[in-house]
Design a protein around this nucleic acid. Structure first.
Length: 195
DNA sequence: GTATGGATCTTCT
DNA sequence: GAAGATCCATACA
């Protein structure tokens, strides 16, 4: 029913893709979740790994779009990004948070925590919950093990704000999340309304 | 409820 | 050798 997004979706400006990804479904194996928070990274931005140029690690970012960029953060966590824009542009969208959709039992098994809300509310957590690992680095989002499906419904009001967890170029308003996610909790600092 | 610090390891200088 | 796109447990108000 839901349509898997093609390469054309990712072959667009990274800020556009980051906004359009909110409300889409990220699927890996039996588990899936609705994307509720993203961040855009561009090679002109000092916080982006591609900023330093092409290295063994970042060459994926500079390659063709619709490819998974998975890397280890703080020695422990695997973070999932979707590479965007044509080959030669070092850009990606970091998926920061999901709402669990299917395979919730399996997520609980992997995460070993009591509440559904905590399963995917962080970039390292969602990778663990979906079982995304470094072995998925460089795989295609079009016909690989990780799939992103088109929106099932309008995600509602979108919030835009500054990125978090970084020290360089932290002032750029390149973080997007679905407002409905924060109906019952305080909004994080640096977010303002939009649309 | 908010604030703080430790764990842990890949990558680049 | 140092820094980092994080998470979690613990401490305190």
């Amino acid at each position: 029913m839901t349509e898997r997004l093609g390469r054309d979706f990712f072959d667009r400006p990274v800020l556009t893709v980051a906004q359009d990804l909110v409300g889409c479904v990220l699927r890996h194996g039996a588990t899936a979740g609705v994307i509720v928070e993203t961040e855009a990274y561009h090679h002109t931005d000092a916080a982006c790994h591609a900023h330093v140029g092409v290295t063994e690690r970042t060459s994926i970012l500079w390659g063709p779009p619709a490819v998974a960029y998975v890397y280890r953060s703080y020695g422990i966590h695997a973070l999932f990004n979707a590479v965007c824009e044509p080959e030669g542009e070092g850009t990606a969208v970091l998926i920061r948070a999901l709402e669990p959709l299917s395979g919730v039992d399996l997520m609980h098994e992997r995460r070993q925590i009591p509440r559904d809300l905590d399963l995917c509310n962080g970039p390292g957590k969602l990778s663990q919950a979906l079982g995304i690992e470094l072995t998925e680095h460089g795989t295609s989002l079009v016909d690989g093990p990780i799939a992103i499906e088109a929106r099932r419904a309008d995600p509602g009001e979108l919030l835009v704000g500054t990125r978090i967890g970084i020290t360089k170029a932290a002032e750029l308003p390149w973080r997007f999340c679905a407002a409905s996610r924060y109906v019952s909790r305080p909004w994080p600092p640096g977010l303002r309304e939009r649309i």
